[in-house]
Amino acid sequence: MTAVSMNRISLLGTSPRNAVMLAGAMIVMVALPYFLGQSWLSITTEMLILALAASALNIMLGYTGLVSFGPAGLYAVGAYTTGVLMEKLGWGMLPATLAAPVMAGLVGALVGWFCVRRSAVYFALLTLAFSQVIWTVVFQWYSVTGGDDGLVSVPIPDFFFEITNCYYFMLAVVSVCLFVIWKIVNSPFGMTLQAIRENPNRVEFIGVNVKHYQLASFIISSMFLGIAGSMFCVFSGSVFPDYAYWAKSADMLVICLLGGIYNFFGPLVGTVVYTMLTKIISEYTMHWHLILGGIIVVIILAMRKGVVGTLSAYWADRKSAAA
């Protein structure tokens, strides 16, 4: 798998065909508001934010090989930072949204420092524990976070009430963020992370401080999760404790898995598939989590590479068969 996944990453690099595809995708995204109705545009905007969150999580999950069960905690830190600064302290939108990744990065640094101290098992366990701490804090700290009620009247500029404006704004932010993530994971730093994923012991022997790199990955991931949270706050004008709840983390994990975690575009495809599935299934049943859990089980037992991974393996097979 090492060779295959590495190969695929370089394959999606800078070849002209991919550049054309990317440009095509961009044009489609820019043209979307002319084809979609209000409600679908709103769903697409939500998808953009979710895709950013999932890609942020995937820096840890797919590239560093650390399973975090607490991305929702950091997502909520971002959302609450923006929400509280704007609603309670009257900050403008720009500083409030810029503060979100800073705050999420700080919290991520603190939490991450504890989480990478021991083996992968402790990492999983501690990320879940810490995200529940964040949830509890949010829930209890009524005077600042509004507790159970959340923040419902974040003063978002009027500009964003027009869904088309909001969509373009999110598209721009998310594209820039994804580009930065792309640059990071394909830099020497990102390659080191992938090496750590494949064999931490060996990387340690070469003289790399694995824990520092894992922590760095955690912080970067946290910052982008913070941005995603903050963007959702801008989009919806409200923040609720649910953002930090473990079920939200489950959503993000499923998205990464659905799309395929060893691929940059996995979380993006996963978001689309996941959102569509939610739409379709929730029309038939209220017990969406049951199905969601079932989907994860099926993916893990039968389709571990996710949609993108499975498809590209299929294409690779066809190509080699043709050659």
Partner: peptide
């Protein structure tokens, strides 16, 4: 079936069970 697969899948699988059992109890 997944002991041989990477650890992360085991974690995620048991996480899925959390969802399933919680929802089943709710039903």
């Amino acid at each position: 079936p997944i002991y041989k697969a990477e650890m992360i899948y085991q974690y995620i699988l048991t996480f899925a069970l959390v969802l399933i059992i919680a929802e089943a109890c709710k039903m």
